[in-house]
Amino acid sequence: MSVGIVVFPGSNCDRDMAWALEGVLGLSTRFLWHEDTGLEDIDAVVLPGGFSYGDYLRCGALAGHAPLLHAVHAFAADGGPVLGICNGFQILTEMGLLPGALTRNRGLHFICEPCQLSVNPGRCRLLKDYSDGDRATFPIAHGEGCYQCPPETLVELEQNGQLVLRYCRNPNGSVLDVAGVCNEQGNVLGLMPHPERACDPLLGGQDGQALLKALLG
């Protein structure tokens, strides 16, 4: 069992993710270059944070067309677990695996701080080890994390239990305080906060461990 961590030019949380998964949790990982075309022997996929392709055009827009992501589309359609964090969340929306879009923070500033989140796991498989109403603290580090989507989509997402993570104090202007969204099937999760930075006790928090462990079961 192995977690594939996709590496784009400009990714910068790929190694943090590998440390959290492998160094802290003891899960096997493999880096996957964005120009690869297959996901052989990969059981879960992570799109890590960073600035893929320098955030040119729009955050995540160019990464969404990388060769490997065709395979990720098929992997997700087959029910494989896919987790996108920060830039990875932006990529998932750009490639159409998750609804909505992430735009410039309301206050324009890049924000880097711990954020308390309210968890509503709904149908999300990666959040199965959290209970409804749990609080988790993950750091955020982004300039474009303001979640937006058409009002009718938002209603649908809420009814379907897909708005699985919300900020207790909204830092960026996201609609309904949304910090993370899952797809209808529950196997694809995107979130702006960084669970991989809340795993190693040396860094001050372990709230992210249950999320990352769920990638392989």
């Binding site: 735009t103 410039r104 923070n105 309301r106 206050g107 324009l108 303001c146 937006q148 202007g173």
Partner: peptide
């Protein structure tokens, strides 16, 4: 309908 904070600034 989309917020444009850069435009506002």
């Amino acid at each position: 309908s989309v917020l444009d904070p850069a435009g506002e600034a």
